[in-house]
Amino acid sequence: MTVLTEAPAPAKERAPERKPRRNLTPWVLLIPGLLWLIVFFLVPILTSVSASVQTGDYDDGFKLTWHWANYHDALLNYGTQYWHSFLYSIITTVACLALAYPVAYFIAFKGGKWKTLLMALVIVPSFTSFLIRTIAWKTILADNGSVVRVLNDLHVLKLTTALGWTVGNHVLASPVAVVCGMVYNFLPFTILPLYTSLEKIDPRLHEAGADLYCSGYQTWRRVTLPLSMPGVIGGTLLTFIPAVGDYINAQLLGNPNTTVVGQRIEDLFLRQTNGYPVGSAMSVVMMVGTLIIVMSYIYKAGTEDLL
C-alpha cells in the first residue's frame, strides 16, 4: 500500500535585510551652531593664544616668536587687577543670590496671576543700555543724594571707610559704588534661573512639610533649597562669568585704586603700540582662571545638570 505524503512547500526566499538608513537630519541641524562656535568662539580664542606669544609693535607688525615672558609680565605686573576682578565678581554674585532668592521665591509661590507682570518688571530694566544704567548710579550715589545722606546719618560710611570700601563721606569712586553698579546690572541673570527652578517645585511639598511638623525654615532648608539648587548654580554662574570680565562699572563708578583686568587690557590694546601681546596674555590668563573656578564650583556643587 502506497502512502501519499504531501510534498513540503518550498521555503519562501527571505528578502535581503536592508540596513537602516542613518538619519542625517540632526547632524545637518548641528552644522550652523558648529560653524558659529568655530568662527566666533574657537577662532578668537586661538587668535588670542597665538597673539599672547608674539613680539613686535603696530608699526613693524607682530611676529610669532613664542615669547612666553608675556605671561610672566601679565601675572607679575597686574596681580592687583586680577584680585579686584575676582573679588568684585564674587561679592556681586553672593549679593545677587541673597537679593534674588527672596524675589524669585515670592514670584514663584506668591505671585499668582501677577507672575507675568512681576517677571516683566524684572526683565524690563535690561532693555535699557548697560552703559546708561551704570551712569544712572552716579546720580543715585551722588554726594548730595538721599542715599549718601541716610548712610551718613546712620554712620555707616564711617565703618565702610575704616574698611577701605569708601572714601570719607563719599560713595562714588569707591569699591562700594562699583559693586552696587554690578549687582544692579547682573541681578536679573540670577533671578531668572532661580524663578524657573522654583516654579517647578510642587507647592504640596510645603504642605507635606507642615503636616510633618516642620517649621517654615526647616521646610525651606530640607525641601525647597535642595530642589532649587539647579537654579542656584545656574544663576550664580550666569552672574559670576560676565561679572568677572566687566570693567564698565569699575571705569565709571570707581577710581584708580579699583581698576580691574578689563581696564588694563583696554589700555594695552588701544593706548600702547606694543601692548597687544601682553594684553592677549592677560585675556588668556583671565579665561583659564575663570574656567578653573567655574569647573571647581560645578564639581563641588555635586550636580551634572550644567555639564
Rank of each mutant, 00 (worst) to 15 (best):
L4G: 07
P8A: 12
A15Y: 00
P16T: 01
K19T: 01
P20Y: 00
N23T: 03
N23G: 02
L24S: 01
P32Y: 05
P32M: 03
W36H: 05
I38Q: 03
I38F: 06
I38T: 08
I38K: 01
V39Q: 04
P44V: 04
S48C: 05
V49E: 04
S50A: 11
Q54K: 04
G56A: 09
K63M: 13
K63L: 13
L64H: 05
W68D: 09
N70A: 09
L75I: 11
N77V: 07
Y78S: 10
G79V: 12
Y88W: 14
T93G: 03
A100T: 07
A100G: 11
Y101S: 06
Y105E: 07
Y105Q: 09
Y105V: 04
A108T: 04
F109L: 08
K110Q: 11
K113F: 03
L117E: 07
I123T: 09
S126W: 11
F127L: 13
L131H: 08
I132H: 06
K138G: 06
I140Y: 02
A142E: 15
A142H: 14
S146A: 14
N152L: 11
D153Y: 13
H155K: 10
H155Q: 14
V156L: 15
L159D: 07
A162G: 15
A162E: 15
G164I: 08
V167D: 09
V167K: 03
G168S: 08
N169Q: 11
H170G: 06
H170E: 13
P175R: 00
C180H: 00
L187R: 00
T196L: 10
L198D: 01
D211V: 06
T219D: 10
L225T: 15
L227C: 02
M229Y: 08
G234E: 06
F240K: 01
A243P: 01
V244N: 01
I248D: 05
L253R: 01
G254C: 07
V260M: 05
Q263R: 08
R264P: 00
L270R: 12
Q272V: 08
N274G: 10
N274C: 04
S283V: 04
G289V: 03
T290K: 02
S296K: 07
T303P: 02
L307I: 13
L307K: 06
L307G: 07
